[in-house]
């Protein structure tokens, strides 16, 4: 049984981030591995200590600060889980919560979870870019997009090396990795968008290499990935913005 802690799915619900938890559960179940999704949100704080992975997504900036305020009540527990090697996937704005602080538009610094050393600062400008990235979890290229008004500063180990950044907003690396904690600005259902990354994560959580998924659903997911990869590779080759 793999227990998936899904944090603030109702408040951090931008860009279809909710799919990361449900797609992961589906992948496990289609390989005969039982899973359970445990929802955690404002006013609903089940015990997360038995979770194998915590997944948290993207919200508005103010929504993220509201979540952070709520999440600070279990800050110590989350740090212990991170130190113990539990998996965490924090995408989009929730990545900022993993750091030491988030500074809002009024210049107020909000204490973060401090699982990874670094800071996140909100600003007024919106930036959007599409990416081809590489990471150690999969040999396949990771595809995704970032739609942000934040700047991150950290000396921690980056999660991704950047191969293509359509609008040139990030630099050579992106995100953070600490033990099995992943923080990335990549948003949306990245486990749906990147089926090999999904397989890798699901296999690690299941404790065995999962067999190839040949369901109709998965065939479409794979084809969708190949289609987007071709588009982005072509854009990269031609220097399109």
């Amino acid at each position: 049984m793999v227990r998936i802690g899904w944090l603030y799915g109702d408040l951090l619900s931008m860009y279809g981030n909710y799919a990361n938890a449900s797609v992961l559960a589906k992948r496990l179940e289609e390989s005969g591995c039982d899973s359970e999704v445990i929802e955690f949100t404002v006013g609903k704080h089940p015990d997360l200590s038995g979770c194998d992975i915590l997944i948290c997504g993207c919200g508005t900036e103010l929504g993220t600060l509201a979540v952070l305020d709520d999440l600070m009540s279990i800050k110590d527990q989350l740090r212990e889980m991170a130190d113990a090697g539990k998996y965490m996937l924090f995408t989009g704005t929730s990545y900022g919560m993993l750091l030491d602080s988030i500074t809002d538009l009024d210049g107020n610094a909000h204490e973060g979870l401090g699982i990874v050393s670094g800071t996140c600062v909100y600003d007024e400008k919106r930036r959007y870019s599409e990416f081809i990235m590489n990471c150690g979890l999969t040999s396949a290229k990771v595809l995704g997009c970032i739609n942000t008004s934040s700047t991150y500063k950290t000396d921690a180990t980056p999660m991704f090396s950047v191969s293509y950044d359509s609008a040139g907003i990030i630099g050579e690396s992106e995100g953070v990795q600490y033990n099995n904690v992943i923080g990335t600005e990549l948003e949306g259902p990245i486990l749906w968008r990147n089926p090999d990354l999904l397989d890798s994560l699901a296999s690690r959580l299941a404790g065995r290499k999962l067999e190839r998924n040949t369901s109709a659903w998965r065939m479409h997911v794979d084809k969708g990935y190949e289609h987007l990869l071709a588009i982005l590779e072509d854009a990269k080759a031609h220097g399109r913005k």
Binding site: Y15, G16, N17, Y18, A19, Y128, E130, C145, N147, S166, A167, E187, G188, P189, W192, R193, G224, L228, I231, L232, A235, R240, K241
Partner: peptide, 12 residues
Amino acid sequence: KYVADDMSWLWD
């Protein structure tokens, strides 16, 4: 005009 292929909106 732009490189814009994000399909996350399909999940909405």
